[in-house]
């Protein structure tokens, strides 16, 4: 027996619905009879895709005129609940993204409802939802449930579930009215910039080639880019070298970056700090090259090469180029 109704916060990515939102929809549909979506922007743009992934209704705010989503969406949802327009759902599920966390944080205060964060699995125990959260860098899994009668708010990490098109009919689109936000809504986006990227998206690529501090210096990262290009892969990086300014944040794999689950993950000069491991250890096959035989990355590697990346990588690039 499933739950009656789950709400999902959906985010747009360009013209499409973000993968994290479709992943959540797949799980929500599995555990609840009705799945409704809340989002900012124009619901009509996404009603077909959301319906195809199992949503019946999309409540959309329309253009926020530069306002950040956190205050606007949380206020709109809370106002709808207060006015009795919405029947409370069994759970509200959002992605562990920048805006997902803003909406969840703001809404949790408005509803005085706690949030279970960093969820990688959801299951039903009777009629209660139980979330699984990895702790201590993923070495331990904790299962948590709510004991209050408030709406159960869950923040789900990307790549926890597989998105699935189920051929549902286009979702109904309803207006989600944003009330006056007062001072809390004061932040406005005045301009947006996107990093130039080539090749596949980091979180969608079949192969990811990542570099870490063991590459030695910024210039050596070109080997990562070269190998990625040959393999049709996406280049990635550890937080250490993003923080050092070698590559932009959009390259970062790990707890505070992207979660990736490619067919092959090649970790080059990466020691395997827990911060990094949680972002990539779901990869199907992991190849690690590191000169320190004690590096934790070797504990998750299917093929581990104890060696100098500056010797192994150039030969690997040459060998693949000669094929």
């Amino acid at each position: 027996m499933g739950l009656d109704k789950i709400w999902v916060f959906a985010e747009a990515q360009g013209d499409s619905v973000a993968s994290i939102s479709l992943e959540i929809l797949a799980k929500a549909r599995e555990i609840a009879d009705t799945v409704e979506v809340f989002m900012s922007g124009d619901g009509d743009d996404h009603a077909e895709e959301l319906g195809d992934h199992g949503a019946t209704t999309v409540y959309a705010t329309g253009d926020l005129d530069g306002s950040l989503q956190g205050s606007a969406v949380a206020s709109a949802v809370a106002a709808g609940i207060d006015s009795g327009d919405f029947d409370l759902p069994d759970a509200f599920i959002l992605g562990t993204t920048q805006d997902g966390r803003d909406v969840a944080g703001r809404l949790s205060v408005k509803l005085d409802a706690p949030v279970i964060t960093n969820v990688v699995d959801l299951e039903l125990d009777g009629d209660a939802l139980v979330g699984t959260e990895p702790v201590f860098g993923g070495s331990t899994n904790v299962k948590t449930r709510f004991t209050s009668d408030k709406v159960a708010i869950f923040l789900v990490r990307p790549k926890s579930f597989e998105a699935e098109s189920v051929g549902g009919a286009e979702a109904d689109v309803e207006d989600l009215d944003v009330p006056d936000l007062g001072a809390a809504g004061g932040a406005k986006i005045t301009d947006s910039f996107a990093e130039e990227t080539e090749g596949p998206r980091l979180d969608e690529a079949a192969i990811v080639v990542s570099g870490g501090r063991g590459m030695g210096e910024k210039d050596a990262f070109s080997m990562i880019e070269d190998l990625a290009k040959i393999l049709g892969a996406a280049p990635g990086a550890t937080r250490a070298i993003v923080d050092s300014g070698w590559v932009p944040y959009s390259y970062q794999v790990g707890q505070t970056g992207k979660v990736v689950k490619p067919t092959v993950y090649i970790a080059s000069g990466i020691s395997g700090a827990t911060q990094h491991l949680v972002g990539m250890k779901g990869s199907k096959n992991i190849i690690a090259i590191n000169k320190d035989s004690e590096a934790p990355i070797f504990a998750v590697a299917d093929l581990g090469i104890i060696g100098d990346v500056h010797k192994v990588m150039p030969k690997l690039i040459e060998a693949l180029n000669n094929r």
């Binding site: 706690p114 331990t140 899994n141």
Partner: peptide, 11 residues
């Protein structure tokens, strides 16, 4: 926190 931890297990 109004939450219950119902299980702790090694991943």
């Amino acid at each position: 926190s109004r939450q219950d931890i119902i299980d702790i297990a090694a991943a």
